[in-house]
């Protein structure tokens, strides 16, 4: 029972955050409501028994990606957005389309697979299993990814550095 209450509470919070994200006019406010969405999604995952996904959700999305978002907004110094009327087609077809689509998906999921209750830790995909796979069967891809990250950083440094830091500066 407590599970259900917490689940519904964070479900509502998630939807409210998403709506607020769209309604807010300042990018920073939108970004912060996105944090709320990500955080409450993490709680939902946890309640559904996927604790690893929940942890990744917090670390990667609510942590790393949001920091990047906020950085970019601050660097660009983005102000309040200008209100446009918005496209009429989007209003006419978009909102009903989205409602119909989500009802359809929800109906199919419930009809086809049925509903069951799970508790945290009941499903496979525990951190232990994932860690074992990652540092065992997938050890080589995991290690090779570090080279991928390395060249990405190297590339960013090369392309962002000023051309005059080449040899040309010394000669001219």
């Amino acid at each position: 029972m407590t599970h259900l209450i917490i689940f519904l509470f964070f479900g509502g919070l998630c939807v409210a955050g998403a709506v607020n994200l769209l309604v807010q006019r300042h990018p920073i406010n939108s970004a912060l409501s996105l944090v709320v969405v990500m955080g409450s999604l993490a709680v939902e995952y946890l309640l559904l028994g996927a604790e690893f996904v929940a942890a990744v959700q917090v670390i990667v999305y609510a942590g790393a990606i949001m920091v990047l978002f906020v950085f970019v907004i601050m660097l660009l110094n983005a102000g309040e957005e200008e209100r446009t009327k918005g496209s009429r087609v989007a209003m006419l077809f978009g909102i009903p389309g989205m409602l119909v689509g989500s009802v359809l998906v929800g109906w199919v999921l419930i009809e086809r697979t049925g509903t069951q209750t799970v508790s945290a830790g009941a499903l496979p995909g525990a951190p232990r299993t994932i860690g074992w796979l990652l540092f065992h069967n997938f050890l080589l891809p995991f290690e090779v990814t570090s080279i991928l990250v390395l060249i990405a950083i190297m590339g960013a440094v090369v392309l962002a550095s000023h051309p005059d830091s080449d040899q040309g500066k010394k000669e001219s």
């Binding site: 891809p141 090779v144 990814t145 991928l148 060249i151 990405a152 190297m154 590339g155 090369v158 051309p163």
Partner: peptide, 22 residues
């Protein structure tokens, strides 16, 4: 692993293509 290797090869060529920065 093929995917990660493909990305390593691609990203290094993207950067190399832009090496004439002037």
């Amino acid at each position: 692993l093929i995917f990660i290797a493909l990305e390593i090869s691609s990203i290094s060529t993207y950067v190399l293509a832009g090496f004439r920065r002037r």
